[in-house]
Amino acid sequence: MIDEEFKMAVKSCSECGATLPDSIFDSPEPVHCENCGTRFQVKVFPAFFSGPGQVDYGASIQTDDEASCFYHPEKIAVVACESCGRFLCSLCEIDMSGRKICPNCLEIGRNQERIEGLITERTLHDQIALSIALLPLFFIFVTFITAPMAIYFSIRHWRSPSSILPRTKMRFILAIIVASLQMAVWAAVFFPQFLKLTKHL
C-alpha cells in the first residue's frame, strides 16, 4: 500500500534510512538527521491520514417514472449536465470547479480548451514571433525574408490563446517594431537602386 510507504517515508531519512527525530513535525526550521546530518523539513496535512474516498456507483432504477442516466439507463439520474443538459447518475457527474458536467462535455472542454482547469500546455506565439524577429539578426541577409514573416506571425496570432499566466502583448509589439525596422533598413538599401533602375528605363 502506498499510504503505508508514505507513512514510513515521513518518519525516516531518505538518505540513510535512519529514524528522524519527532521534532521534525512541529519545527518551523529544517531538522538534522541524527545519523547522516542531512537537513529535513516535513509538513504533513490531514489528507495524509484519510483513507481512499468512497465511490458512489449510483442507485439502480426501481420504478418506471424515475429519470435515468443518459450513459447508464439502469441508474437513477441525480443531476443534469450544466453544459449539455443530459441527465447524469452520481457515477457520471463530474464536479469541475463547482460546475456539474458530464464526461463527454469534459472531453470536449479539454480538447477545445474551454475549461481552463484542464489546460496542460500552451504555445507561446509571442515568444516565437520575437525569435523570428531577433535571431536572424545574426545572419543579416535572412532578415529580408524573416522580417515580414515576424510581422505576419504577430498579427496572425495576436488573439491566439497564450499562457494562462499573467502576460502582456509586449513581445508581439517588440517583434513588430524590430521587424519593421529591419524592413525599413532593407527599403533604404534597395530604394536608391530602384530609383537608379527607373531612371535608366
Partner: peptide, 27 residues
C-alpha cells in the same frame, strides 16, 4: 500551478490543496 516552460511552450501541473498530503524538503 507548477509551470515547466521551455522557450516556446509551457506545461502545467495543478496540485489542489484538498489533495495535499505532505511536503518533504531535503537539503
Amino acid at each position: 500551478l507548477a509551470v515547466d516552460s521551455n522557450y516556446y511552450t509551457e506545461n502545467y501541473k495543478r496540485f489542489y490543496f484538498k489533495d495535499f498530503q505532505g511536503l518533504i524538503v531535503r537539503e
